[in-house]
């Protein structure tokens, strides 16, 4: 952004041609179909959870890059727009990845109600906490 490059206002020539857009449209549809197919037949092709997450996420990022790059003319525009998008994306994903790690219930799974267990790295033998919702007295055992 050092020199002020002449802005050619409205009439900037359209960058892609119709055929280019049609090819891209087809590729986008193919990727979406591929994602659907992977998800639909995840058992038959025996894909594990982690690899599925990895492939599906990378496929969607490919689609993301295609739409942003060519359909939104990001590739032909000023570099500052690219910084804007990637800055926002990077900061957002970094912050919420950190938030997810902090908030993720490490030892307990909410579904099985374990979240009310003592969050003890070494699980003590019997100290299930009588959560205030659980009825009944604690068994009075001599010290």
């Amino acid at each position: 952004m050092n020199t002020q490059d002449a802005a050619h206002g409205h009439g900037e020539k359209a960058h892609g041609s119709v055929t280019l857009y049609m090819v891209f449209a087809f590729v986008l549809c193919a990727i979406t179909f591929l994602e659907w197919w992977i998800f639909k037949h995840r058992n038959s092709i025996g894909i594990t959870n982690h690899t599925m997450v990895f492939t599906l996420l990378s496929l969607s990022l490919v689609k993301f890059a295609m739409v942003c790059g060519w359909y939104m003319h990001l590739r032909y525009d000023h570099k500052s727009l690219m910084k804007l998008l990637f800055g926002g994306m990077l900061l957002a994903s970094g912050t919420f990845l950190a938030l997810g790690i902090i908030v993720h219930p490490k030892e307990c799974d909410a579904l099985k109600g374990e979240c009310f267990k003592i969050r003890d790295p070494a699980p003590a033998a019997d100290t299930t906490v009588p959560a205030e919702a659980k009825p009944g007295e604690a068994a009075p055992t001599a010290p």
Binding site: T127, V129, P130, E132, E137, A138, A139, P140, T141, P143
Partner: peptide, 17 residues
């Protein structure tokens, strides 16, 4: 077990009931 309620504290000793 320290349990806070609206405006008083409850202490439970599970081993001594």
């Amino acid at each position: 077990h320290v349990i806070g309620h609206q405006w008083w504290w409850e202490f439970q000793y599970p081993d001594y009931g």
